[in-house]
Design a binder for these strands. Structure first.
Lengths: 170, 170
DNA sequence: ATATTTATTGAGACTCATTATCAATAATAC
DNA sequence: GTATTATTGATAATGAGTCTCAATAAATAT
């Protein structure tokens, strides 16, 4: 882990500690290990994978604690859900990503991140119109990546989407 | 079921029959019962609820058949996934809805549909930019509805989100 | 009509992600 | 240091969704 990354994780741990204190909860080494692990990597992750990464590094944290910590991190805004695929949720942490959305291949599952200034504007206008206090949005565009586009021959590599079906959207 | 609604469902069943034929599959009364039930109602639905609705109307269709039919209906574009909440996916059928997105209250779970002409345009521009053949999108705005907005007193009615956590998004 | 082929069905077993249980432990407040 | 009580880990329980398999029934050919 680079010095930089470590410093970033420290900032996030600090934010988490404050949140915990405000809620009258308790700070624990297990929770800090989980946050450090999340912020040591910029990829999307899921609960099981996170648990295994910790275990492989000999950080003893139970699966139950991983599952219990994720909602706390969501509540304090350090991570967010990005999509439901293969029967479970996938998350990402907020550091070092400007706010962005996802373009996802419905064939091979590959994901491209994108950002567009018009999206937050749209979000706010629509929220105002319907009298919602908007906190966030999720914009996901689905289709075929260049590798998987029909008629390009690469379709054999596409895996069927697993449990929960990540299928088409109108 | 009004005459009108019945006619609509027939159109959809027709579309489904063609899809089934093209794929070399077989049409069955169970599948037709499932489609009729879906199109008899304009609300969002989930697999379990659909199964129970059928059962309450004494239409004998097994849960397995419900689960097996849903992906077929997604593939042929008659229904689509709208969100993952309370540990499972929720769907809607396409009839009588122009394409729209959802504004969802992260507190009480209420959903408002909205449509905006700028969204499909955005989708296409972004798809082109990243060399994706776009088929669809899902734009979900999260926040607090007017009933649940912080500082408005109604927060006691908010239910915690269940399994899978429908929590905040950046 | 009848026979043939094979997709579909239903019941229930199974998988696997997530949550609940509970006794032991350990943060925090006093 | 003691009391209070949130948290932990191990594991049981839950529940959504899938698989299995023998029986059934569409579609098609005869």
């Amino acid at each position: 882990m680079s010095l930089n990354k470590y410093r970033f994780a420290m900032d996030e741990i600090q934010k988490f500690r404050e949140y915990i204190r405000e809620k009258g909860l308790r700070n624990t080494p297990e929770r800090e290990l989980i946050i450090e692990e999340i912020f040591s990597n910029h990829d999307h992750f899921d609960a099981e994978g996170l648990f295994l990464r910790l275990r492989n590094k000999m950080k003893r944290v139970s699966k139950a604690s991983v599952y219990r910590t994720i909602p706390l991190l969501i509540e304090c805004g350090l991570i967010k859900e990005v999509y439901f695929e293969d029967g479970h949720l996938h998350y990402e942490h907020i550091y070092g990503h400007r706010h962005h959305c996802h373009l996802r291949c419905i064939c091979c599952g590959s994901v491209v991140e994108f950002a567009d200034d018009r999206i937050p504007r749209l979000q706010n206008q629509i929220g105002k119109k319907h009298d919602f206090l908007v906190t966030s949005h999720r914009f996901e565009i689905l289709g075929y990546c260049s590798e998987c586009a029909p008629g390009q021959g690469m379709q054999g590599t596409c895996r069927p989407s697993g449990r929960g079906h990540a299928g088409n959207q109108g």
